[in-house]
Amino acid sequence: MKRVIIDCDPGNGIAGANTDDGLAIALALASPALSVELITTVAGNTPSDVGAQVAKDLLVRLGSALPVVQGATQALKEDHAPWRAALDRRVRQLDMLDLWQGVRAPAPIAVDGDDAADAIGRLVCDHPGEITLVAIGPLTNVALALQRYPAMAEAVAEIVIMGGVFALDDYIKDTNFGLDPEAAHQVLHSGAAITLVPMDVTTQTLLTHQDLSRLTARDHPLCHFVRDTLRPWIDYSIRTRHLPGSWIHDVLVVAWLLNQRVASGTDYRVDIELRPGPTRGKSWRYRTPLRVDVGIPADCGALVHVLHHVDNGLLLEIIEQALTSLER
C-alpha cells in the first residue's frame, strides 16, 4: 500500500472550475492500494480556501476524518490577480453559469489548519521513504515545504506532478506551472525523485457523459459526488473545447500510481522559463545527446521522468474498477 499526500486545487461544485482534482481524490480514496494520509490545497484552479472547502465537504459527506489543510493563497512571485481574473470570471464571461444550476456547492466547514507546507514537510520527514506526494496544482506548497524542510527532497519516496506543457499548438504554458514558475523550478531542481505528467499526455485522456454514467453507476456518496460535479464540467468542455467530453488531467497521476501500464514515459532534462515575457512559465525538455549544443551547459535542466502516452481505455477501466467496488 502506497502512503500518499494529495496537494491540489479542487473545484468540484464551483461554477466554471475544473473538476479533475476531485476525480483524482475520489480515485485515491476508492483504491485499497493507496492510503491517503493528508490533503492540502493551493491557489490555482480555485483559491486555496475554496479548494479546502471542496475537499473537506467531500470528506464529511463520506464520514472521513482525513485532515485537510489549506495552503498558499498566492504564488512565490507571480502576480495572482490576472490569473484569478481569468480563472474565476471566465464562466460568467461566457454566460455558462446555467450549466451548474442545481449542482450542490460545498458546505462551509472548518478545515484542519492553514499551513499546508508545514503539514507536508513534517509528514514526509517523519516517515522517510514512505510518502509519495501527489502534486496536482501549482507547486507553491511543495516549494515552501522543501525550503523549510531541506531533508524532504531525500525523504520523499517520489513526487508525481501534473504540470507543464511542451508541444501543444494551443498552449505556451499551462496553469499549474504558469501560475507559479518559481515554485515549479525549485521543485524540479530539488533533487527529489520526480515523475512529470504534462498536458501533452493528459490531453490524450477523455471522459464522456456515457463513460461517467457507467463509472458512477454504484449508489455510493463518492459516486454521487463524481457524477454530479463532473456533468456540468463535461458540458462546459464540450461547448468551449469542442471535444466529445472532457480531459481528466489530474486523475492520470493517481491512476499511474495504481498501474504504470496506463502511461509510458521517458527520462528528459526539463526546465521552466523564469524571465519576464510571453514565454515566462513555459516548460521545455530535451534528451541527450543534443544534436546542437552550442551555448548549452552540460546537464542543463533537471533529470525528470516524463509521461508521454496514455492508454485512455485502461485509465477509464482503473477508475471504473475502483468506483464500482465501493461498499456502502
Rank of each mutant, 00 (worst) to 15 (best):
M1C: 13
K2P: 00
P10W: 05
P10C: 05
A15V: 03
A17C: 11
A24M: 04
L27E: 04
S31Y: 02
L34M: 11
L34V: 10
L38K: 14
I39M: 10
T41A: 09
T41F: 09
L59A: 14
S64G: 00
V69W: 14
T73L: 12
A81I: 09
A86G: 08
G102P: 06
A105C: 06
P106W: 01
P106S: 08
A116E: 08
A119T: 12
I120K: 01
R122D: 12
D126F: 14
H127R: 11
L139T: 07
T140C: 07
T140L: 09
Y149V: 03
Y149G: 05
P150I: 03
I159Y: 06
I161C: 09
A167M: 01
I172L: 13
K173P: 01
L179K: 04
L179N: 01
D180V: 06
E182R: 02
H185R: 13
Q186V: 06
G191S: 12
I194D: 00
L196Q: 06
M199K: 14
T205R: 11
L206W: 04
H209V: 01
C223Q: 07
D228M: 12
T229N: 12
W233L: 00
A255R: 09
L258M: 10
L258H: 07
D271E: 02
R275T: 09
P276R: 11
T279M: 06
W284P: 03
Y286H: 15
R287D: 03
G301L: 11
V304G: 00
V310A: 15
G313T: 09
L314G: 09
L314I: 12
T324K: 13
L326W: 09
